[in-house]
Amino acid sequence: MFKKIDFDKLKNEGLENVPMKERRDFLKMGLALTGIFAGGTIFSAVSSFDRVFASTEEFKEKYPYKPHYAMVIYQNRCIDCERCIEACAETNKVPEGGYRTRILEHDAPDAIGQQREFIPVLCNQCNIPQCTRVCPTKATYKNPTNGIVMMNITKCIGCLTCQQACPYNARYFNEEKKAVDKCNFCFDTRLSKGESLTGCAAACPAGCRNFGDLSDPSSMVYRTVHQIEKTVWVMRPEAGTKPNVFYTRG
């Protein structure tokens, strides 16, 4: 007969010496290690199912919006064909010189293999937006249903404080509207008319821009943000704005 082990009395020897690979292997099984006991012969673990990895911890229990619109961008798939920019300009009547989305270029001449990368950027529809916080007239606001950061152009006085506050440089002054304009995930032009994708995501020929509902476990964006095998990141996390535009490669 085995001697009965009193698990409560075992001393946790700490995870410091558990190799990272082993911890990751457990994570892939859906278990997060919490301790090792009895000279490393016993592991304790808790389920990591439903844990959110790229999104922020405070939103893991429940996403604050329904639908909680988000975009996952496969950075390595962008080829700067700029069909997204064209589609955006056409859909949202973005004038020449203005932009709701742009493609950044990153050159790495010393890199092995591919030495160039294109990075699509747009409004991150932050969970904690800085722009809405600083707007003196509440012309820009977070939609309470779907979380999209929207503009009420009749209230905008063109002070451009929001532009200063935005860490993503996602806002421009639209001379025709005489107001600041920005990406709203095509809410007025497409989503509210029954379309499921933004103009840019629909126009992307490379599967780079993926749009969906982060609160829906069957959506591609949910499945990407909640896995650990591929790194998922956000732009400028230090700004603390909790973006809803995620980046990955693959």
Binding site: R77, I79, C81, E82, I103, G113, Q114, Q115, R116, F118
Partner: peptide, 12 residues
């Protein structure tokens, strides 16, 4: 693979 190696885009 390595899409942007050949795809120089509108910028290119």
């Amino acid at each position: 693979s390595r899409c942007a190696t050949c795809h120089t885009g509108v910028k290119g």
